[in-house]
Amino acid sequence: MDPPALLTLKDVGISFGGLQAVKQVSFQVQEGQIKALIGPNGAGKTTLFNLITGMLTPDQGEILFHRQAIQGLPPFQIAARGISRTFQIVQLFGHMTVVENVMVGRHIRTRAGLLAAALRLPWSRREEAAIRAQSLEWLAFVGLQARADDYAANLPLGHQRLLEIARALATDPKLLLLDEPAAGLDMTETERLKDLIFAIREKEISVLLVEHDMSLTMEVADEIVVLDHGELLAEGPPREIQRHPAVIAAYLGRDWEK
């Protein structure tokens, strides 16, 4: 028997008006797995991310995390259960410093409330110091410790993407969703991103990524899920996907073989 899956999607679907953006999609992410989600533009990849993280609620189907249904929960509760994400269009807290951005990631794992904060209770000050220390560690993990006190908005795009990853990791996720982490990165940065994704797995965090950079995807992913027009087209290890006739057809057009 298979080991229990970390994340299970069962016949998940959602439509916007008349458009069925995601249709009966089912797949699993195992613990310790790096799984990639690919497909042409508009295939429903980001929509699927929004469904998993609670930004959207599916019309049909079930999403199980640690064997518990999470569909319909608000995003902050899903984050609390251990799913974190980055965004295709970077969503940093631009008016805050780099380290403060990561510190927000610690919010869900810490508990100083308004009163404790307002009165500067000793335990809340200790907690605050711990938040800062842990956040600096995550910055070091992605290689941004030197920029800790710069404003996030002033970072170049490559660094902003790394910062989003550090911030997401600071929530102590079991599953990290990366939405096009390599978009806008040059070749050396992409190479470093690849190492980073492997290092994240080393920390026993599973990764689900959407990525258009095929060489990166083929290198890092254990398994690939292909979406087209909201439907699951194929699923399997990179080698199989590369040769899969339906995938080739979806990417290159049906007449390619003639």
Partner: peptide, 30 residues
Amino acid sequence: LSLNIVDSRIGRALRAIHDSETAALAMGVD
């Protein structure tokens, strides 16, 4: 009290909501 609130976990979460409510939610801020 105000200086302390601003300079705390709560104050940080408030500023995060201001900059990007979507990202704040995804990071677990209610």
